[in-house]
């Protein structure tokens, strides 16, 4: 297996007609980690990935694997495996023949065909024409194509779309395994919840622009945190908070205090002699932070 390479986007822009689909996008994707490439539908994810793979020409900027453009890679399939959203199959060709065609084109050993079909759980359907495949089977076949050259880099566009629950569990483990072996894994999705169990890092774009970049946990701290606090004597608690200069609003389950620190409120209540019945941090879900980042006018 070749080592994973760093994926780099340098100031990528793409205009279709007068419309900017991707605007000055720059980020890097490290090997050994699963990176989620997130954004709502139409944010420019697929266009960015197709630019990375040389299928779409960027209006400006460069995207490279370890500093080399896709089209200049000496053995592209052996270095980068890609599965894109589109169902790119001739319906009259069997899965085995479909993969054999590209194995020949890339000069890979023919034994890889059955190996990757086994790896994605399609070996029993190898001789079946792809026209009869379900959406989930097509997703697996797309993945099998990506794995043909045993590449160090995987670029997967919405690989979870159309998978059944068992398939979703399988692909989560698969992505973790690939990264654990030192490969670079870039996986796009329009739903954070789909990938949040598998990704280490997130790159979030909206309207063609980068809006957030960092480890998954960084999404947690981005949202304005609050602490819920309540007391049998709510008025005394409110007075103590006001005295300490902490703003709050009255929520359904208590007072929503504008501080991330429950300890501070506990100390405050203790010194003021107010009994507490509720004290916990209000966790904004990752999905909430995600939607706040990409929302801005046109949320899903």
């Amino acid at each position: 297996m070749p080592a994973g390479a760093v994926i780099e986007f340098h100031n990528i822009s793409k205009r279709f007609g007068g419309v900017a689909a991707v605007n000055d996008l720059s980020f890097t994707v490290e090997p050994g980690r699963v990176t989620g490439f997130l954004g709502p539908n139409g944010a420019g994810k697929t266009t960015s990935l197709r630019i990375l793979l040389g299928l779409v020409a960027a209006s400006s900027g460069t995207a490279t694997f370890g500093g080399v453009r896709y089209r200049d890679l000496p053995h592209p399939l052996a270095m980068v495996g890609a599965a894109l959203e589109a169902a790119s199959f001739h319906p009259g060709r069997s899965a085995r023949d479909h993969l054999a065609v590209y194995t020949i084109a890339a000069g890979l050993p023919r034994t890889r065909v059955l190996e990757v079909l086994t790896q994605v759980g399609l070996a029993a359907h190898a001789a079946q024409r792809v026209g009869g495949y379900s959406l989930g089977m097509r997703q697996r076949l797309g993945l099998a194509y990506a794995l043909l050259g045993d590449p160090g880099v995987l670029v997967l566009d919405e690989p979870i779309n159309g998978l059944d629950p068992e398939g979703i569990r399988w692909i989560r483990g698969f992505l973790r395994d690939m990264a654990a072996e030192g490969r670079t894994v870039l996986v796009s999705s329009h739903l954070l919840s789909e990938v949040q169990q598998s990704v280490d890092d997130v790159v979030i774009i909206a309207r063609g622009q980068l809006v957030h970049l960092g480890p998954l946990s960084s999404l947690d701290t981005d949202a304005a945190p609050q602490t819920i606090v309540d007391s049998p004597d709510r008025d005394a608690l409110a007075a103590a908070l006001t005295a300490a200069g902490i703003t709050f609003s009255i929520g359904r389950t208590g007072l929503l205090a504008a501080t991330p620190d429950p300890g501070l409120l506990g100390h405050l209540a203790f010194t003021a002699g107010v009994e507490l019945s509720v004290l916990h941090r209000q966790k904004a879900g990752l999905e909430d932070s995600f939607l706040a980042l990409v929302g801005g006018g046109h949320s899903l």
Binding site: L53, G54, L55, Y70, R71, L73, P76, L77, A82, L84, A86, A87, S88, F89, H90, P91, Y102, A105, A106, Y145
Partner: peptide, 18 residues
């Protein structure tokens, strides 16, 4: 035309970028 119709240009150009 089949390459366009069945979108097989994608796997084709990924395997042979030239």
């Amino acid at each position: 035309t089949g390459e366009f119709r069945h979108q097989t240009l994608t796997p084709t150009f990924l395997a042979t970028p030239r």
